[in-house]
Nucleic acid binder design. Structure first.
Length: 277
DNA sequence: GCGATATGCATAAAAGGAGG
DNA sequence: CCTCCTTTTATGCATATCGC
């Protein structure tokens, strides 16, 4: 079952109910803000540098260009509401208001579990939004924008007054993988091999390879390449440095390899990518 | 002993690197 | 770009180790 509203690169709302196992296709990072609300079921979300168990009533906040992945946890049945918006959506607000509304994305924990009272209000709000995009009464096009603003404001106010309930690592191994991910995030421009990392973190390469995939949802090398290409894209957008410099800067010591990899991930050659933006 | 966690090996698959 | 050879990683299966 699926209802949707809006354009993927503008304000967009989608409701999906799934009964069969599902793994995320592409688009592990994107230029818009994304929020999930779990209406039922369980999933595991990897966002940024760690994975979170996500259950009914939880909210997930993913900032632009943050690497993320979703994985199944137990029963495959789940339904969720997905919302995204580009930075332009906020341009109607004053800078201080924008900061406030974005505060949920700036939290250390990307998953927020609200206590009973606050949760009830958010739940009502989002169920009304769902009914609007499903039934399409006159003027329903106005509601996604209102609901997103109200959701952000509600969560932002809550965060100003409370420390969010911490969501712990499932196991010490989760904590370790998270540590390894942070290490990669900080050192992606240097040569990284499974063998070297496994030695550094006292874990067998075979085991690391398996568990990295299991916990982050990304194969080890994919994660590194995604991180490098994402940074290369940023440099292409924000600087005018030449492409081979950028390739070397983000950790590719072979230019032709960079080209192939970039195209596979970005669906565009580096030159075309720069032209388009 | 049992289940969960961790490792090793063999081999398939994929990526990296160099040259045409 | 494409092709070919090398290196690295992914994974099924077997086995070891730990905590209880």
């Amino acid at each position: 079952m699926l209802y949707r509203f809006g354009d993927i690169d503008k304000l967009y709302v989608e409701y999906v109910k799934r009964a069969s196992p599902y793994t995320m296709e592409a688009d592990h990072y994107h230029p818009y803000y994304e929020m999930y609300y779990m209406l039922s079921g369980q999933r595991i979300y990897f966002v940024g540098d760690r994975s979170y168990p996500v259950e009914q009533g939880d909210l997930v906040f993913i900032a632009p260009d943050e690497l993320h992945q979703t994985m199944h946890a137990g029963e495959p049945e789940h339904d969720r509401l997905i919302m995204h918006f580009g930075p332009w959506y906020l341009s109607r607000f004053a800078p201080a208001e924008q900061e406030l509304l974005l505060s949920p994305f700036r939290q250390a924990s990307k998953v927020i579990r609200l206590p009973r009272q606050e949760h009830w209000q958010i739940d009502q709000l989002l169920r009304r939004l769902l009914a609007e995009i499903r039934d399409k009464p006159p003027g329903y096009e106005l509601t996604p924008g209102l609901a997103v603003t109200e959701l952000l404001l509600g969560v932002a106010r809550y965060l100003q007054q409370h420390e969010p309930v911490p969501i712990y690592h499932d196991t010490p191994l989760h904590a370790k993988i998270s540590e390894i991910v942070r290490h990669i995030n900080a050192h992606f421009a240097e040569p990284i091999t499974l063998a070297a990392l496994s030695e550094q973190f006292y874990i067998s390469p075979y085991y690391l390879s398996r568990k990295f995939k299991e916990i982050t949802g990304f194969p080890f090398t994919d994660y590194i390449l995604l991180t490098r290409v994402k940074e290369a894209q940023r440099l292409l957008r924000e600087t005018d440095r030449n492409i081979s410099d950028i390739a070397a800067e983000v950790g590719f010591d072979n230019f032709s390899h960079f080209g192939k990899t970039f195209k596979r991930i970005a669906k565009l050659s580096p030159r075309d990518y720069r032209k388009r933006t």
